[in-house]
């Protein structure tokens, strides 16, 4: 079985000998181990040693398709007019599942949002708020703030994504561009500890004012108590066997 160069092809881990993996461009967010992803108990399938990184969809390259190119061109042009290098503001552009996402550098978020709202060719007049996501596996950019902007004028929807590290969870508030984000940013602060600098009153909104911690972060436990049902103990939801 040994080839001329003395390497068994079954054990050659050079990239060209491995099966291609989908979406190997995006950030790895976690590592999948084993065949079934069980969180406890043995993997008796014989595939327990499988290790596979899970990545989010990676950056897209032009053309993006449909009206996506038009919006990207307009945005880049409008930013250049304000003597801002688009590559500095837009870290990357992702097209996935027919949705367009601009990853924005946090210091440029208010400028980009204002441009998207005010430029007549863009005119994203409705912001549907901000949603936080906590990726403990996305090192150095654990906390993501995700904004969805809707243009009623042009009937379009885009997504802005801003990433900040756990150690420095600051990003500028866009309440003065989209006043609707007042409560949404308070909610993202309440649940994720994202600090929106410039927000008029960044206080907790759902949890009690004296609450400790940020409940929607992945390292915050769900809590819960075991329940007895027909004589058997059912563990709390976060203690049950689970698969990933």
């Amino acid at each position: 079985m040994t080839e001329a160069n003395g390497v068994n092809p079954d054990k050659d881990l050079n990239a060209e000998n491995l099966p291609g993996s989908r979406g190997d461009q995006g950030e790895p967010i976690r590592v999948q181990r084993g065949m079934f992803g069980a969180n406890n108990g043995g993997d008796t399938s014989g595939y327990g040693g499988l290790v596979r990184p899970v990545r989010l969809p990676g950056p897209a390259s032009r053309p993006y398709g449909g009206w996506f190119d038009e919006v990207a061109d307009e945005l880049e042009g409008a930013l250049e007019e304000q003597s801002l290098v688009p590559e500095n503001a837009i870290e990357k552009t992702v097209v996935d599942r027919d949705e367009l996402t601009f990853h924005i550098a946090r210091e440029h978020l208010p400028r980009v949002a204002r441009t998207l709202r005010d430029d007549p060719a863009l005119r994203f007049e409705l912001c549907t708020g901000v949603s936080g996501v906590h990726f403990p596996g996305d090192k150095g950019r654990e906390l993501h703030a995700v904004y969805h902007l809707r243009s009623i004028t042009h009937n379009r929807l885009i997504r802005l994504e801003v990433s900040v590290p756990d150690s420095d969870p600051h990003l500028p508030s866009i309440v003065d561009v989209y006043p609707t984000n007042d409560w949404h940013e308070r909610e993202a602060y309440d649940f994720f500890g994202l600090i929106f600098d410039g927000h008029p009153a960044l206080t907790r909104i759902m949890m009690p004012d004296d609450w400790q911690g940020f409940p929607q972060r992945k390292d915050y436990p769900l809590g819960g108590i075991p329940v007895e049902y027909k004589g058997a103990q059912i563990p709390a939801p976060d203690q049950r066997r689970s698969y990933s």
């Binding site: 999948q32 969805h148 689970s242 990933s244």
Partner: peptide, 27 residues
Amino acid sequence: PPGQTYTAVESPKGELGVHMVSDGGTR
């Protein structure tokens, strides 16, 4: 499969949007 999506429906009260992120798992 990993990725994210935003879907919105017109509920009686207005735009009901769901932002959903998957990490490729069963949850």
